[in-house]
Amino acid sequence: MTDIVSMQRLNKYFGDLHVLKDIDLTVKQGEVVVIIGASGSGKSTLIRCVNGLEEYESGELTVDGEKLAPKGGSQKALATIRKEVGMVFQQFNLFPHLTVQMNIMLAPMKVKEASKSAAAETAVRLLDRVGIGSQADKYPSQLSGGQQQRVAIARALAMEPRLMLFDEPTSALDPEMIGEVLDVMRKLAKEGMTMMVVTHEMGFAREVADRVIYIHEGQIVEEGKPEDVFDNPQNERTQSFLSRVLKH
């Protein structure tokens, strides 16, 4: 299988703070990789590097065959990469001035020059797929958090990405809405989508992930199949992290 993401000795700083330390990571096509770790460990920064929302200082990063240069280098590959990589944010980041349907139609029309009718059709199909076909003409603020996040997923899918990044997609949701978003993600994973997911939902990680990565202070300290990482963690930091998060 081909690698969609390949990181080698990737380093990232915020000023003096060394947030990612020599990260080596590959994600194969169709793989679901879940990244766990305490807040501030660098896990969000890691996936934000993949679509260039964060620039990195040194190392190598290849996404879907395109080399993304470190800070100061040519960012030409970025346009291509962003077309191929979808992202779902913790705060949804839907466009409040556009209807749900227009939120989904915008990128296909602007970036892929899809016709309005084709984009509208895609939007309706995707909204059905995430279970909110009846909300197309509403504005984001009229929807619940769970519905908004499902729109955000549909919006990313409209670009037919080869890879989906999820940055704590359920962390801003009320507990009763987490399930509906995870269901959509689970379905997506089953359909073969390549996914990198930063989450605190350990149940989801155990069930859906092909591989779980534990990050501590900017370093990958443990990596493996979910059952191995969760049931038999080798690193003591992983053990202590898991004992804290799995207790409740």
């Binding site: 260039g52 346009a79 980041n93 602007k110 970036v111």
Partner: peptide, 17 residues
């Protein structure tokens, strides 16, 4: 909010779009 531009960029829109 910065998240608005990030969402746009992540969808493949150019900076000016």
């Amino acid at each position: 909010d910065k998240g608005q531009s990030e969402a746009g960029l992540s969808l493949g829109l150019s900076r000016s779009q």
